[in-house]
């Protein structure tokens, strides 16, 4: 997007997200003043949101390169991502996943 209104638009987005996210964070802290429990169905759906959102954030960054699907060794992120997945699975630790994933990416980029 190009144009003089870009800055204003960015701020509008940030303010809208700020207000919306504040409402999400406050939601049940306030609602429980009037109601006692989360409806079962809402609880079920909410538990499914984090894995769905995170998977949808991660996968394209690993399997796409310059806007198209790149399932070949030329895509260094693919191998680095595959090894990092194993670390993430076993440790669930951000720092270790980060170090191993970036380490493999750098080895592939600078030595290969």
């Amino acid at each position: 997007m190009i144009g003089p209104t870009d800055g204003g638009l960015r701020w509008l987005i940030v303010v809208a997200v700020t207000v919306g996210l504040f409402a999400v964070r406050l939601s049940f802290m306030q609602l429980f003043q009037w109601a006692d429990d989360i409806p079962d169905e809402v609880d079920r759906l909410l538990r499914l949101v984090p894995p769905a959102v995170l998977a949808a954030l991660v996968v394209p960054d690993v399997v796409f390169m310059d806007g198209s699907l790149a399932l070949s060794p030329a895509n260094h992120r693919l191998l680095a991502g595959a090894i990092a997945v194993v670390v993430a699975w076993y440790t669930e630790d951000i720092l270790r996943t980060l170090l191993v994933g970036m380490g493999v990416l750098w080895i592939l980029t600078f030595l290969a």
């Binding site: 894995p51 769905a52 690993v62 990092a84 993430a88 440790t91 669930e92 996943t97 994933g101």
Partner: peptide, 25 residues
Amino acid sequence: PLIFMALLFSTVEDRWTAAAGAVAA
């Protein structure tokens, strides 16, 4: 994506959360 990857596995608690992640992927 590496940071989100680590977060992702800590949110997978059972078969249904795993299914949600797999379908979204």
